[in-house]
Amino acid sequence: MASSRLEINFIRLLSRCESIASEKRVETEWRLEKYVGALEEMLVALRKSPSKPTVEVMTDYTRKVDFLKGLLEAEKLSGTEKALANQFLAPGRTPTIANERMPVSKTVHMQTKARCTGEMRNELLGTGLSNKGNLETDLRNRRGLVLDERQSAAELDAVLQHHHNLQEKLAEDMLNLARNLKNNTLVAQNIIKQDNQTLTQSMRQAQLRI
């Protein structure tokens, strides 16, 4: 069945939204939120259209729009909350346009998870990148004083102990993070399994009606 004009416009806007989502956006970026709102309206119209796509295609369209909506909501959070929210996002399973080697939403999901993990790591450490740089500089400076024989043995011990404590805290936080991500992955797998069951049932019902 040939795509309707409404579906063609929907696909074009969806592809544009995914492209914007894959870019590094500034806080004043407003287009994505506005475009996703328009996508939702077009998706509702597409469901009511006499020439609407198959159940499988509509399910993937809905999944991609929900992913973009979830992405916008997650961006309003910070640190750990943002990382956990991104774990529950379900990207599209098929390319939106023909020249995609893999679904753009999957690429966006991986980029977002990597960025959120970095932000969460900084939050767990209790420092920003600049403070981290200051800490490293401070350690180097103190070690330099030892080489110049201007720092006492007690001060050196304090620096080494501080560095050791920092490493232990990071290791403990990352272990807790790994446990949380494992639990969230199991939950996400169950959700995907339920989605597959629902899709299978819908396809069977659609075949019975034919």
Results as ranks from 00 to 15, higher is better:
L135G: 02
L129A: 13
L199M: 06
V57G: 01
A114C: 08
T185N: 02
N122T: 05
E136H: 07
M102Q: 12
A85L: 11
L170M: 12
L13W: 03
E73K: 15
I97T: 13
G133A: 15
A85P: 02
P95M: 05
L32R: 00
L199I: 02
N180A: 14
L43Y: 06
R31V: 11
Q207V: 05
N176I: 04
N9V: 04
E172Y: 09
A83H: 05
V55D: 03
R179M: 09
T198A: 14
E136T: 12
Q197A: 13
N184C: 12
S51C: 01
M1Y: 13
I20W: 00
A98C: 10
Q167K: 12
S19E: 06
I192Y: 07
R5H: 09
R179K: 15
S152Y: 00
T59K: 15
Q197Y: 01
L145V: 03
T28E: 13
N184V: 01
L13E: 07
Q197R: 07
I8L: 07
V104F: 04
R140V: 07
I191D: 04
L39Q: 02
R140H: 13
T96L: 07
V187K: 11
A178Q: 12
L84W: 00
V104W: 03
A90D: 06
K106Q: 09
N86M: 10
P53H: 03
E27L: 14
H109P: 04
S3K: 04
R5Q: 11
L156P: 12
D138E: 09
R204Y: 06
L160Y: 14
K48I: 02
V187P: 00
S105W: 06
